[in-house]
């Protein structure tokens, strides 16, 4: 029983890792642009398809395909920001429409390029790291956890120690006041999209061999990510990370010990409970922070 508990903790940590990567990007973009990016799950999907194209089809090294995913999805994010989202800044309804349009376009492009079938991606490594007697973690999952810790740590340092990091936090709190300090709203938006999309792309790329890769795979992760940012307090990066951990643990434990459908319901109940007790989320101060 102890072994099963520990194993479930390991599995939950893995789920929290990629969920946090997706949710933090979503929060960053919302903070700076005031737009909820419904196409964020598709950035995750594009990252996975970079692995399909570069690693599975071209047979190049797995980590190279992850790097391609990071750069490619980041570029897609910047292009979308410039062409679609920037004109919709501070226009939540317009942003909503545009992001759903982008979602459909990206899904269609993936279908045109790769078909609707699920892709089989040979796991880059079959190694299982033994953590304790009867408790192991596949190396592939361990890499996701380590990458999430490293990337979120780097993001934290960037936001706290660099000039543009401060600028991004200032823009997220008050875009107009930030502009009065000489911080370009356009550049801040571009950086937010570049980072947010890159994080989702990396999450998709790293998990591609572990999940089912198909054009609509974004749905599964975006619903969880929305619950996470609402629980964490929309606009709070720390809140998103902690809520991702809370959600992943609740969901994984209920799935393991009860049932997967009940786990989804528990996730929604968690969100409802937070909304009733503290409508701004656990870490949200105002509508944005």
């Amino acid at each position: 029983m102890t072994e099963l508990l520990l194993q479930t903790v390991v599995n939950a940590t893995y789920a929290a890792s990629y969920l946090a990567l997706v949710a933090v990007g979503l929060v960053l973009i919302f903070g700076v642009m005031g737009i909820i990016n419904f196409a964020h799950g598709e950035f995750y999907m594009l990252g996975a398809y970079c692995v399909v194209a570069v690693y599975a089809d071209l047979a190049l090294p797995f980590l190279l395909s992850v790097a391609v995913g990071l750069v490619f999805v980041s570029l897609v994010g910047m292009a979308a920001e410039r062409a679609l989202f920037r004109p919709m800044r501070e226009n939540p309804l317009g942003g909503l429409v545009v992001s759903i349009g982008l979602l459909l376009i990206l899904q269609s492009l993936a279908t045109l390029g790769f078909g609707v079938r699920m892709e089989h991606i040979p796991p880059p490594s079959q190694t299982v790291v033994q953590l304790a007697e009867g408790v192991g973690i596949p190396l592939q999952r361990l890499v996701v956890i380590l990458a999430a810790v490293a990337l979120l740590g780097a993001l934290w340092l960037f936001l706290r120690r660099t000039r543009w990091g401060w600028a991004l936090r200032a823009s997220a709190q008050d875009p107009e006041a930030a502009a009065l300090q000489g911080i370009s709203m356009a550049v801040a938006s571009r950086i937010a999209f570049a980072i947010g999309a890159a994080l989702a792309g990396v999450a998709g790329a790293l998990t591609a061999p572990l999940v089912r890769t198909y054009p609509y795979m974004g749905h599964s992760v975006i619903v969880a990510a929305f619950i996470v940012i609402i629980v964490g307090g929309i606009g709070s990066l720390e809140g998103a990370v902690l809520a991702a951990i809370a959600y992943a643990f609740a969901h994984t434990f209920v799935t393991t010990f009860v049932d997967g459908v009940i786990a989804d319901i528990v996730g929604l109940l968690l969100m409802l409970a937070v909304l009733i007790v503290k409508p701004t989320g656990l870490f949200g101060s105002r509508d944005r922070a």
């Binding site: 600028a167 936090r169 200032a170 709190q173 006041a177 101060s285």
Partner: peptide, 22 residues
């Protein structure tokens, strides 16, 4: 600006350094 609009979740020093952004 009207209403001061300091960056509430930045420290005093970070607020001042933001003013020197350029």
């Amino acid at each position: 600006p009207e209403g001061r609009r300091v960056f509430a979740d930045l420290t005093v020093e970070e607020n001042l350094r933001t003013g020197a952004f350029l």
